[in-house]
Nucleic acid binder design. Structure first.
Lengths: 190, 190
DNA sequence: TGAATTTATTAAACTAGTTTATTTTTTTCG
DNA sequence: CGAAAAAAATAAACTAGTTTAATAAATTCA
């Protein structure tokens, strides 16, 4: 499989101009591309020097397993989004898993670093991620699970469609049982 | 007040080499430096094009006020740390306030952007901030307030000394009343 | 297709954390 | 210094969310 079209169109986009031959060569040399079946682990807690992933097709999640064995979803990545542990090369506490059958590009930290020195907009993706996480942090802290669910429905309705309910509850920081309660209550209002 | 020593030593540090005359000129031309009394607001929700702040002396906090008027501290910055809304130039939902009398450098977004294109380690501060916030996010989500308090004590004992208790409770995402309960319980174990 | 497995629902007892109110302690500053 | 204001403690009633367990519904795949 050697079609890097989606990846290259992303780099063209962040460069803001067509890519030169040499750039295309460099970019494609850094990235691998693979197909993964649903529920495949791409990255596990304990690993060091983890990769960064860019999703061409499908849906992935980054999560942690706490002391009690409970999973918490930190973020999802769908088509044309990045996912991975920005704390690499340190040993990661996180897992990355496919939620759907997916097509994914991967790149090692060193190469990623080279690229974001060259394409400052790539570094900007990190900044945007920070802003996104901070917003999510505030929501989880200051709002009820019910409010957070409504926010998710209105801001990312497509995720509600594509995710099983227990993955959503884990993203909202509540138990599947409690989310089910919220939905039951919500359904009555009709 | 025109002593930029602390700021310049920071840039020397992230450059990894002594600064040239032209660099010093550029950096000092971008930053302002001011003294603020304790409890002074430097940035308020609703403002756009907010500044980034680098603390020479003192302690600042970034917080939000939710729908019910309740404050949540998102992060603190003490000596030689950055604080501000990375979402700028968009209208910010956050506040920045001094907790102690402080000496603070400030820089506008445009200039900040110019600098982190030149000093990639400055962009790295954003990456480190992301990693820090993600860790904090996971802690708040998966641990009890008591556990989070113990974590704060062991990782940032100096903050416990410098902050009033109600600022700590707001950082942990609980009410002052509940933190007081935790401390009472904790004190008994002696 | 249908048996097995995974996911979602419901219920009931429980707990971490909130709210409101009052009192005590600490800090501020004229 | 002493009065006023701010911060912390304590108590009691409350609520958002958990836990455990049993049942029902939906999905998987041989």
């Amino acid at each position: 499989m050697e079609n890097y079209e989606v990846l290259l169109s992303y780099f063209k986009h962040i460069k803001g101009a067509p890519l030169e031959e040499a750039e295309i060569k460099e970019i494609t040399s850094y990235f691998g591309k693979r197909i993964y079946k649903k529920k495949t682990l791409l990255m596990s807690a304990g690993e060091a020097n983890t990769k960064h992933y860019y999703v061409e097709k499908g849906l992935l999640r980054l999560y942690i397993i706490d002391q009690n064995g409970k999973e918490f979803n930190i973020l999802f990545a769908r088509e044309r989004q990045w996912i991975g542990d920005l704390g690499t090369p340190a040993e990661t506490p996180y897992f990355v898993e496919t939620v759907e059958n997916s097509v994914v590009y991967s790149i090692a930290e060193d190469d990623f670093h080279v690229l974001y020195k060259r394409y400052i907009s790539l570094a900007n993706y990190i900044r945007k991620s920070y802003v996104f996480l901070q917003k999510r942090f505030v929501s989880i802290l200051s709002k009820t699970a019910e409010e957070n669910y409504e926010e998710l429905v209105s801001e990312h309705p497509e995720l509600i469609q594509r995710l099983p309910q227990y993955q959503i509850s884990s993203y909202l920081g509540v138990t599947p049982v409690f989310l089910s309660k919220i939905l039951a209550k919500r359904a009555k209002k009709d």
